[in-house]
Amino acid sequence: MSGTGKEQSVGIPPAEQASGARLTTLRILLSNEFGLLVLIVLFAIIFSTISPAFLSKFSLYALGRTSAVNIMIGFSMMVVIITGGLNLSVGSIGVCAAMFGGLLMQAFAMPWPLAVCGGLAMGAALGALNGFIIVRSGLHSFIITLATMSIFFGVMIFLTRAESYRDISPAFTSFGRMKLAGIISPLLLVSVVAGILLSVLFRYTALGREMLATGANERAAELSGIRVHRIITYCHLLSGVLAGVAGLMLVSRTGAAIPSMAGQLGQDWLLPAFLGPVLGGTLLTGGRVSVLGTFLGSFLVTMLTTGLLLMQVGAFWMQTYLGLLLLAAVLIDMVRRSYLTRRKLI
């Protein structure tokens, strides 16, 4: 299972070296990232022909700003998926971090950089708690994060009395509403930086390689001296931080920390959280990651949502389209994989 394109994997290199530039080109052409790029360009052309407003400065700006949040949500799930686990509580953690940041700004009148750090620390703490319970109990992350999703959200609602914090520092809000070069949101830059850091982590650092190794084969990783329990806890901690970033981005964009911003129990984040990594070719069984793929996948999803809303095909049906997109993505991925296996390209 060698990597295609920008994907990285831990495992046995292919037995036979596929020779010839033609095969390499074919492999790149069949990679997830290339497919996503083609789809993004294709849909951009379709949307802009049907509705010229799609390419207006404001529309592009809004697209970048919305996708920035979705990309962070995708990253947050991605770093747990690589261990072969799941984190259903991303939405819950994101909202808790955002509410804590809001509390620090409103009730304690902290300067916003400090409050942001506080919010991220909250995300990290909740994520680490998830990881701790998972490795200590030896149970699957699905049921643990299902329970903590309910607990985190419940405690947050109980403590805040379901009320929003609207007294957000203006400097922080203006960050979310700033326009660089007319069309680029600084939030998108945050996501790009996060993506680069994650790429570096998984490609060049021992910690990142150990995370991938743990996901590929936990037992083998343990035998080769990796402290898998610690690594899994780190992954969940990182997931919590990234969810916190997404939550704080939303605060900065809307100018308020609202308990319902991710829906009941944060469930509204689940679909975007899985769409990005799955479209991007991150294996759900763990061990393989594509940061660029997740980035492009989340971007494509946001673009489709924005484009369909612009074409006024009925906002109420949007969830159906996204669900069908996820289905199509996993089915196409399955066909692609079996094609590559048959042609001995993997």
Partner: peptide
């Protein structure tokens, strides 16, 4: 038929059914 994990399939169908409901 696909052998894809029930988690992903039902996450997708959750969204499809809920979308039809809202639609």
């Amino acid at each position: 038929l696909t052998g894809i994990s029930a988690f992903v399939i039902t996450l997708a169908s959750l969204s499809v059914y809920k979308g039809v409901n809202l639609g």
